[in-house]
Computed example of a mutant assay.
Amino acid sequence: MKNLFLFLILAMFCANLYAKEKTIAKIPEASGIVYSKKSNTLFVVNDEGTIYELSLKGKIKREKKLGDYDLEGITLDEKKNILLLANEEDDEIIFLNKKDFSIIKKIKIKDTYKGVKVLKRGKNGIEGITLYKNKIYVSNQSNKPYPKEDSSVVVILDNKSNKKLKIKDIIDHGYKDIAGLCFYNDFLYLVSDDANLLIKYDINSKKVVKEYKLSKKYAQEGITFDKKGNLYIADDKGKILKLKLDE
Rank of each mutant, 00 (worst) to 15 (best):
A15H: 09
N134E: 13
G115P: 06
V118I: 15
A195T: 10
K168D: 01
K64Y: 13
T75F: 00
N196A: 09
D150S: 14
K216G: 13
I156Q: 07
E21A: 10
A19T: 08
K120A: 11
K123L: 13
F5D: 15
D186K: 15
D246K: 06
Y69L: 09
M1C: 09
I199C: 06
K22T: 11
N87D: 15
K80C: 01
D235Q: 02
K166E: 14
L245E: 02
N3M: 13
K65F: 07
E63V: 02
K166C: 03
N140P: 02
V155H: 09
G128F: 01
E72S: 13
N87A: 14
K110Y: 03
G125F: 15
I167G: 01
F7R: 11
D158Q: 08
T23S: 01
P147M: 14
Y201N: 07
I167H: 05
D236Q: 14
N40W: 00
N97H: 10
E29Y: 12
Y132T: 07
Y113T: 04
D172R: 09
L85R: 06
I178S: 12
E72P: 11
G49Q: 03
A195W: 04
Y201A: 05
K216F: 08
R62Y: 14
K26R: 14
S215T: 06
G174V: 02
A25M: 00
N143T: 09
L54T: 03
Y137H: 03
T41D: 07
V45I: 13
T23K: 07
V45F: 05
G58D: 00
K61S: 12
D158W: 04
F187M: 12
G49N: 01
I9W: 08
R121M: 06
A234N: 00
D202T: 05
D169Y: 02
K20M: 08
I24Q: 04
I240L: 02
T112A: 03
K110S: 06
T130D: 08
K80V: 01
N159F: 12
N162S: 14
M1P: 11
Y201I: 03
K120Y: 05
E211A: 06
K2H: 13
K120D: 10
V191T: 05
N40M: 05
Q220D: 00
K217V: 03
R121V: 08
K105D: 11
K144P: 01
L241T: 02
K59L: 12
Y184R: 12
K239H: 13
L42I: 06
L131E: 11
G125D: 05
K114H: 09
E247L: 14
V34H: 04
F43S: 02
L190H: 05
S36T: 02
L214E: 01
K22W: 02
D111C: 04
S215Y: 00
I94C: 07
F183P: 03
N46D: 14
D100Y: 05
K228D: 15
K110V: 03
A15E: 15
Y189E: 00
I126R: 11
K176L: 10
Y18A: 08
I9M: 07
K244P: 00
K98I: 02
K114Y: 10
I223K: 02
K108V: 07
I24V: 12
